[in-house]
Each structure stands twice: as structure tokens, then as C-alpha cells.
């Protein structure tokens, strides 16, 4: 009962903060709303017993993405006044398309018979899987990161030398 209530509360919080994120005109508020939305989604994951996913969400989104976003906003000085345009010319189309997508996917997902017999995935299992069955993609990610690092340094260094 407790879990169900917190599931719905956290989901509502996630939706509200996500809506605030895309409608606010202040860039800093938007970044902070992203933090709230990510935390709420992480909470939803916790109520569904997906601890690993919840931890990764907090670590990556709140810990890295949001902090990076705050830095970017602060350093570029966009936090003093509302800097985002107040209206989007494609607002109506965007609403129609996203409503259509939600209806379509929601219909499909609700029509799907409930999945049963799911095992709880512990951190232990995830760790073992990452270093056995999925070791190849796991190691490949390190090259992705290396390439991203090298490339972004070259671009950030900027000037044609």
C-alpha cells in the first residue's frame, strides 16, 4: 500500500517537474527542474525494486548532467533574466504529436498482458553480468569515452593552431 502510494506520488512529481522543465523561461530553473524530475524517476525505480537503475539515475543525471548544466548556465551568464523565448511556433504541432504518441504507446502497453515472474535484479547480478556476458560492450564503452574525451578537448582548445 505504502509503495503504491509513493509510486503514484513520485510519478506525479516527475511529470509535473518535467512539464515545468519544458515551459519555464529561466534556464537555471529548467536545470533544477531536471534534477527534481530525475530524482523522482529514480524514486519510481526504487518503488519497483530496480535499485541499480535508481542509483545510476542519481549518479549520472543528478550527479553529472545537472551539475554540468548548472556550470554551463552559470558560466554563460544566462541565469539573470528569462532568456528563453516565451513561445514556440510549433507548440500546437508538438502537443498533437506527443499526445498521439502517448495514446498509441499507452494503448499498446495497456493492451499487453501483464508480465509476471520477473526476478529482482540485485547489484550483485548486474556486476557479474557486466563482467561475463556483457564484457565486450562494457569494455567498448571505455573506447567511446576515450574518443569523446580526446575529441572534446581538441574542439574546446578551439583556435586553429
Amino acid at each position: 500500500m505504502m509503495t503504491t502510494v509513493s509510486f503514484y506520488l513520485l510519478s506525479a512529481l516527475a511529470v509535473v517537474s518535467a512539464l515545468f522543465l519544458v515551459t519555464t523561461r529561466n534556464l537555471l530553473h529548467a536545470v533544477l527542474a531536471l534534477a527534481v524530475a530525475s530524482l523522482a524517476v529514480a524514486g519510481v525505480m526504487l518503488t519497483l525494486n530496480a535499485e541499480f537503475l535508481a542509483l545510476v539515475l542519481i549518479l549520472v543525471y543528478v550527479g553529472a548532467v545537472v551539475v554540468l548544466g548548472v556550470f554551463a548556465v552559470m558560466l554563460t551568464g544566462h541565469f539573470k533574466k528569462p532568456t528563453l523565448p516565451s513561445s514556440n511556433e510549433l507548440k500546437i504541432i508538438a502537443v498533437v504529436v506527443s499526445l498521439a504518441l502517448v495514446t498509441l504507446l499507452g494503448g499498446v502497453i495497456l493492451g499487453q498482458p501483464a508480465v509476471t515472474g520477473l526476478k529482482e535484479v540485485s547489484l550483485d547480478t548486474v556486476g557479474k553480468l557486466l563482467l561475463t556476458d556483457y564484457v565486450l560492450p562494457f569494455e567498448l564503452v571505455s573506447i567511446v569515452l576515450l574518443a569523446a574525451l580526446v575529441g572534446s578537448i581538441v574542439i574546446a582548445r578551439g583556435k586553429e593552431d
Binding site: L136, P137, L140, V141, V144, A147, A148
Partner: peptide, 11 residues
Amino acid sequence: LLYVGLELATF
């Protein structure tokens, strides 16, 4: 593996 390969090919 396909997804990680795709990211490595695109980044």
C-alpha cells in the same frame, strides 16, 4: 553490443 558500437561509430 550493437548499440555501443553505434555510439562508438557516431560520436
